[in-house]
């Protein structure tokens, strides 16, 4: 191995170390008895988990997060798929503007989305409801869902739909028996990915949640106080949840892509 190759491998390793250090550290600290963790580590403990999960507020937050992320993921996936299908199937005037609108949300800072949603939801009387969070997370998730579904539809033979009509299937039957089965892996990927987006989102949720905290909002509010290793315990659970979702999303998507 040449020095240059060795150096580039080392650099890559350092980058990956940096990226995964906070995740690994969080997990390690969550089992470490020190209140202010440092090296060398103190003794092994379940104390922080016990503490976090004896707290009713944390349980409420998990319930809220699950409800919000499942609903928002389902809605994002539906909207993202519809938009991707529209882009795949139809050409129409102002299509560029239509697609721009669909893909714009990730470019608006979350704090601003939070403020705008808070102001608007208060105006229409939905501030502080779980629906408000779901509405916002659906906006944030659907561009990701659209991207995933669009990539999958790109692999579909454009004659496939016509072939189904030709064999006596109406457009609706074709959607049900051809387009949806073909897109199934992308729909699962999009669902997992948008569930992860929603499960981790804290800024907009913090603005509009009111008393209905989700997990990241609960973390944020604990963080307002002092250093508290509970967060590592909750954080580890959150990491595992969202990483599992993202890994599932990517695995299904990548496997299907290779098989065509």
């Amino acid at each position: 191995m040449s020095i240059a190759t060795f150096a580039s491998r080392l650099y890559l390793a350092a980058v990956f170390f940096f990226v995964f250090l906070p995740i690994g550290a969080s997990v390690v600290f969550s089992f470490n008895s020190d209140r202010f963790p440092t090296l060398p580590l103190a003794s092994f403990t379940f104390e922080w988990y016990a503490k976090a999960f004896s707290d009713d507020k944390i349980w409420d937050a998990f319930r809220n997060s699950v409800a919000v992320s499942l609903t928002a993921a389902a809605m994002s996936t539906f909207i993202g798929f519809s938009t991707a299908y529209t882009d795949f199937r139809y050409g129409f005037r102002f299509k560029a503007a239509y697609l721009a609108l669909a893909l714009l949300p990730p470019t608006i800072p979350l704090v601003i989305m939070g403020l705008a949603m808070l102001a608007w939801l208060s105006q229409i009387g939905l501030s502080g409801t779980l629906f408000g969070i779901i509405a916002a997370h659906t906006v944030l998730g659907s561009p990701f869902a659209m991207a995933v579904c669009r990539l999958r539809l790109h692999q579909m033979d454009p004659s496939l739909e016509a072939a189904a009509w030709n064999l006596g299937a109406s457009e609706w039957a074709t959607m049900r028996h051809v387009v949806l089965p073909f897109s199934a892996p992308a729909l699962i990927s999009a669902f997992c990915l948008t569930a992860a987006v929603s499960f981790d989102e804290f800024a907009v949720a913090w603005f509009v949640s009111g008393l209905n905290r989700t997990v990241p909002v609960a973390i944020l509010e604990i963080l307002q106080g002092n250093v508290d290793p509970q967060i590592n315990a909750i954080g580890t659970v959150v990491f595992i949840t969202s990483m599992t979702l993202v890994v599932i999303a990517q695995t299904i998507f990548m496997r299907r892509n290779r098989n065509g």
Partner: peptide
């Protein structure tokens, strides 16, 4: 069909 368009 030219592409056969079989349902994969």
């Amino acid at each position: 069909w030219q592409s056969l368009a079989l349902f994969p």
